[in-house]
Design a protein around this nucleic acid. Structure first.
Lengths: 407, 407
DNA sequence: TCTACTTGTTGGCTAAAACAACAAATTGGT
DNA sequence: ACCAATTTGTTGTTTTAGCCAACAAGTAGA
């Protein structure tokens, strides 16, 4: 049931006039090119239902706009004249920024969703928002210098471990970084002259897995992500990302699932984040800090009874949390990322059992628990999606910035 | 971020051809007429952004299809030629069915969303699905006899207190009724010769409040409903109803919010449904059964310390449950219905406080707790919406059934 | 080499929305 | 009572995005 909201005050956007049709068709085709990187023209015709000649016209418009190329590809599959292959232009890129407690990562991503470069700048402890903006802007400037002069930039996407007001790109509260009410978006936009789009890291991860990863094409999915800063999540409902009225939706780490003993990063008790703690695992393994890979290795190989006990407890808690989200969303899949994947790998049956114990029979029938597929590239790919979004929605009016500033 | 799911297998539905535009425009206009009952043509032009002449054309097509009337209404507001008033046709109706433990309610609803008639047939305890179908079919036949011969029927919407597989209208599990795996939809369709659409009662309530009640026009809202059969809910995410992969989404009553002492109707512990129990209130008031109005009266006027203690406890639990949904959905409003409204009225500040204690600061800023507006009509209006849905989506191809069967 | 099949291209066609000009109906001022 | 200003409905024409049909181009298989 996807009825659009009908409001008598909505000034002229509900009706489809002819321009809107053209825009929609261009958008759909560019999105297919974007999500799949490479599509044949015959695939475009059958998927959209539009006429061959219309597709021809639309693709050549996208080519003229500089978003796609057509080549006589080798995608020969069966009899008949081979279809032309359409690929995303390499001339359109976006930057991705991910501030963390000890480093800021900056990436360069192409319109085909490929991560071209990644720069990780290690910083002193507890960087302020200004520090992070400065570091990111410098890295972006360097990457920008390395671009060809005919390339164009869609913008910068930023993944923040914390709550973000999406409407004006303000970081409301990022407990791990210690940031409160930081207008990160406008700061970085000022420093770079590029449009900036900020969002919560877990929401971005969810979007990345939906567009390019383990949740690709799903209409209903839940994503749970755990980094060093706690647990976040995202959900796809009816094919669209859960955002909420102000963009704070999907705070799955802060939902109460159990007793009230432990307290999470935000001062709430009995939450998923307080029961499934990365730090507790590091402690039992006597590690001070570790990458997800190192931690995963330890989890896979441990024989320590104490560690196993803690792991089992965390698996049970994670299962209880998942059951909550299964009851609420009735998703097709639960996607796990960060060290939650390691917990799943450690005891998949245990996790599934614990999930099933808390879910209604009907809802648990179809659901699948799965690990994310994008790994370290998740946030780079997802952040870039924020920057590409406007372009994908309305290709003919897209505002791209040239590599070299006009003098 | 509402990107449509792009799939290479999706056989020809993504592209907008000219027919689709026409269909979309007709649909939008009919929806506005439906949701508001009465709209002026100038409102239609400004809201859709379409040209005056286009609106004129579209409205006259809807008139020819028998879904709307145009009258020289008295909606004179300011200078200029007064605009024509468009109203929903009274010739198009739908039936609504609501089976309960002790009665089955059948309603007749017009395309303007007005409940024209309601029949409540009291039944013996524990009716089977077949009993309920028989009762409903008889009541529908009688109502059908009372219709004018030029009226047309969109179908029957059914609200079930339990989990429903929407794809084939099967009741999976309705604990209160004791129904398991009942193909209610096909049974009722067979008995009446009308198309039948079955869904969960709380989802239907949510839709009703969104389309005609306290959540009208909201893009993000959560609905919580408590009847004699437990607690259910629904959510509007990004303007579309949360349904889930199979239609079991929104089982908010079965989400764990607290300790593990109590057990709900579905055997899960510590859930909202197990902590906020209508039966507990009836017991403390020494009532065996009561309507929501009678219970509300008792709650408003009680001086019993024991009752107040239980009420406060339930308010606190409800607040905790609400906080879970605020963290997850970041809604603009929480809509309460059934005896949850009474709890809210009993101690609004307490409920808000308890909600705030469990929510992240950012998410709790804009949220409002509000009572549903539709009262007893909620399920009648909402069920009829199910039947009207196809008609609203595609007015020109709508399949309506005449009142008198063809011979 | 021929047939079957699929895809690309081209020029003309169509239908639905936009446009423009005018008529109709109201308010308010003189 | 009349006229200007304003808004809306109506009508005939124009525009344009997608469709259609015919043909050319290219592949696989016999």
């Amino acid at each position: 049931m996807k009825s659009p909201i009908i409001s008598l005050q909505s000034a002229g956007v509900l009706g489809s006039n002819r321009d809107a049709v053209r825009q929609h068709n261009l958008s759909i085709i560019l999105q297919m090119i974007h999500f799949y990187g490479t599509v044949t023209r015959s695939q475009l015709t059958s998927a959209t239902g539009l006429n061959r000649s219309t597709i021809s016209d639309l693709v050549s418009e996208l080519e003229q706009l500089g978003f796609a190329h057509e080549t006589e590809g080798a995608a020969t599959s069966g009899v008949g004249r081979p279809s032309l292959v359409v690929t995303a232009s390499t001339k359109v890129v976006a930057f991705a920024v991910h501030p963390e407690i000890d480093a800021t990562t900056v990436g360069l991503v192409s319109l085909s969703g490929k991560v071209l470069k990644t720069v990780r700048v290690v910083m002193g402890q507890n960087p302020t928002a200004a520090d992070s903006v400065k570091t990111a802007a410098k890295a972006i400037a360097e990457l920008r210098d390395g671009l060809q002069s005919d390339q164009r930039i869609a913008g910068i996407g930023v993944a923040i471990p914390g709550q973000v007001r999406v409407s004006d790109n303000v970081v409301r509260f990022a407990p791990q970084l210690g940031w409160i009410e930081q207008p990160f978006g406008s700061m970085l936009s000022q420093a770079t002259g590029l449009p900036v789009f900020v969002d919560n890291d877990a929401s971005i991860g969810c979007m990345a897995e939906r567009n390019f990863g383990a949740a690709r094409g799903l209409l209903d999915a839940v994503y749970l992500f755990a980094g060093s800063g706690g647990i976040g999540g995202g959900a796809i409902v009816n094919g669209s990302q859960l955002r909420g009225a102000s963009g704070y939706g999907g705070e799955f780490g802060h939902v109460r699932i159990g007793g009230a003993a432990d307290v999470d990063y935000s001062g709430l008790s009995g939450t998923l984040e307080s029961l499934v703690r990365r730090d507790d695992l590091l402690q039992v393994f006597k590690m001070y800090s570790a990458t997800d890979q190192e931690l995963d290795q330890e989890i896979r190989s441990t024989k320590s009874k104490e560690a196993i006990k803690i792991l089992r407890k965390q698996v049970a808690s994670l299962g209880a949390g998942i059951s909550t989200y299964v009851n609420i969303f009735n998703p097709e899949a639960i996607i796990l990322a960060g060290f939650l994947s390691s917990l799943f790998n450690f005891d998949p049956e245990g996790l599934i059992e614990s999930m099933k114990a808390g879910t209604l029979k009907a809802a648990q029938e179809r659901v699948v628990i799965r690990n994310g597929e994008l790994g370290e590239e998740t946030l780079m790919v997802g952040s870039a999606e924020l920057a590409f979004h406007g372009l994908l929605e309305n290709p003919s009016d897209a505002q791209l910035v040239p590599v070299k500033k006009a003098r």
